[in-house]
Design a protein around this nucleic acid. Structure first.
Length: 493
RNA sequence: GUCCCCGUCGUCUAGCCUGGCCUAGGACAUCGCCCUUUCACGGCGGUAACACGGGUUCAAAUCCCGUCGGGGACGCCA
């Protein structure tokens, strides 16, 4: 269905509204991204709003985590608000609703959350005593200073229906009688999420609310609030949930740090790859494209491509090896994005990681190493295991048996290494001369090229699996190469 | 318990609205082969799915009903 924009505000205005009660997890990140993409694709405005009306649970650490994560995503936003600075608006909205008779004071003492959950009150809808209290009596008790919560008076008769059209889930209808009289203001005067969220959405002229499907059933309440406040509700688009391999909603408690955005950052994901990955969960361009740049995503993103079933983020338990913990597709996409990066840029991104790990190298050398490893790493962090031998003076210990070539023996390894030492001492350390010299040497010794190269590779890299030999030698240089071959020869003795 | 949502390969998905082109397509993962100085990249190929049961129809992954399964919401949390 084509987007019909409100003629009064042709530019869509969308918001990402996290509550700072935990770190930024991948589900929130995806919500942010989808909002951002929608805004950018349609030339609209992206708003960041901190929904911090729960003073009890807000923490500065959460605020920091959210900004850390968003900063890394590097997408930016156009306007920024804090709900705690807009309480007057929320209260005004609440009392407007009250004055219309659509809300009432509830003097019942606050329930303790636990008792409510375990009790047989699952079907609680409202407290008749509070709801039916006369206005005069209500005013009198309020004037006497008795604390109260303000509740929405949900229509109970006439079989009224609440409805809204969801851009993803379609036409939604629910009997008002099935909706409980939810709170608007707490007894301490603070607005609840429902109230604050709607009051702000209306005031900020939000045109589209794009958020997780866990809010789908809350939306009926929001529609009620918008209408009571005399506003036209925005359009809604609910996103299918991101779930863990066990099928449940992502949570730090159950799933650990794998659900935190910063975990991906720290492991060496490129934010553009991470964004790409998240976009593929619950949305599809429907043309088999998967590896996409941000520009491409912006160009083709649309609400119609969003599907309705939950998507599994296929991570393993945090206990697994670093490379094993992430969704294989995220890893693959990251490798793809790494390979797509210009060498200069990849090199520049790798350098700080190398330094941070305590290795010494120069930007110039890093630039020469980068092409040798870029097809061999999936995470930026992998540079540490793929190129370590370039950075150290002394190779870590390795098993001398590794020096023995395929279908060869110790004697052959010895013969190859000795000859390599002589040949390499004389040859220019450039790819072609190295290639020629070493192949010629292999022929003279009567061994296969591979049998010649493998002992040298192990002597120089300390392991069998490494980048191509001649390029490696070229970057490593004659001095280090000869020293390492000498050491290998000593090991064989 | 009440209400709501969802159900195509192991995973992400295309197809569903507008039944036939679907002996169900792509990707990741996995397995095999090729390329090759190792690893990787790349190329080629294989295994692998319409939850189940009814109905409607000449024809159903696609429409209808039911069952089962999964998820979400029900707070003076967001």
């Amino acid at each position: 269905m084509p987007e019909i924009l409100d003629p009064a505000s042709p530019k869509p205005r969308v918001r990402f509204a996290p509550s700072p009660t935990g770190f930024l997890h991948v589900g929130s990140a995806r919500t942010f991204i989808f909002n951002w993409l929608y805004a950018r694709h349609n030339g609209g405005i992206m708003i960041l709003r901190l929904d911090d009306t729960d003073v009890e649970r807000n923490t500065q650490a959460s605020v920091d985590s959210i900004f850390d994560g968003l900063k890394w995503l590097n997408l930016g936003w156009d306007e920024e608000y804090k709900q705690s600075e807009r309480l007057d608006l929320h209260r005004k909205t609440a009392w407007t609703i009250f004055e219309k008779g659509l809300a009432y004071r509830d003097f019942t003492p606050a329930h303790t959350g636990e008792a409510e959950k375990s009790g047989a009150q699952g079907t609680w809808l409202f407290n008749p005593g509070a709801r039916e209290l006369s206005r005069t009596e209500s005013d009198r008790r309020a004037a006497a200073g008795e604390p109260f919560a303000l509740r929405f008076r949900v229509p109970r008769d006439g079989g009224q229906l609440v409805r809204f059209a969801d851009a993803v889930y379609g036409e939604q209808v629910k009997a008002a009688a099935d909706i409980e009289d939810f709170a608007l203001l707490r007894s301490d005067g603070m607005p609840t999420y429902h109230l604050a969220s709607c009051a702000d959405d209306a005031d900020l002229r939000i045109s589209h609310i794009i958020r997780g499907q866990d809010h789908l059933s809350n939306t009926y309440k929001h529609v009620l609030i918008f209408e009571a406040a005399g506003c036209t509700p925005p359009r809604f688009a609910h996103l299918p949930l991101l779930v863990a391999p066990d099928g449940t909603k992502l949570s730090k408690r159950r799933h650990g740090p794998v659900v935190s955005v910063t975990t991906y950052r720290d492991a060496g994901f490129l934010s553009e790859a991470f964004i790409n990955f998240l976009c593929l969960l619950g949305w599809s361009p429907k043309n088999d494209r998967e590896n996409m740049s941000l520009q491409e995503l912006t160009d083709i993103f649309s609400l119609e491509g969003i599907n309705r079933s939950n998507a599994v983020v296929n991570f393993k338990d945090a206990a697994a090896a670093p490379e094993e913990t992430f969704d294989p597709k995220a890893l693959w996409l990251n490798a793809e994005h790494i390979r797509a990066l210009p060498v200069e840029e990849l090199s520049a991104r790798l350098l700080p990681i190398v330094h941070h790990a305590g290795f010494h190298t120069t930007p110039e050398k890093m630039l020469r190493i980068t092409p040798l490893i870029r097809e061999r790493i999936k995470l930026l962090r992998d540079v540490l295991t793929a190129a370590d031998f370039f950075f150290v003076d002394q190779l870590p210990p390795y098993d001398p048996a590794e020096l023995i070539p395929q279908k060869g023996d110790a004697a052959m390894a010895m013969k190859v290494l000795s000859r390599a030492r002589e040949v390499l001492a004389k040859v220019e350390f450039k790819h072609d001369p190295l290639d020629q010299a070493l192949r010629a040497a292999a022929q003279e010794l009567g061994v296969k090229a591979g049998q010649m190269f493998q002992p040298i590779r192990v002597a120089v890299c300390g392991r069998k699996n490494a980048p191509p030999l001649f390029e490696t030698l070229e970057v490593l240089g004659k001095e280090a190469t000869l020293a390492r071959i000498e050491q290998a020869v000593q090991k064989m003795r």
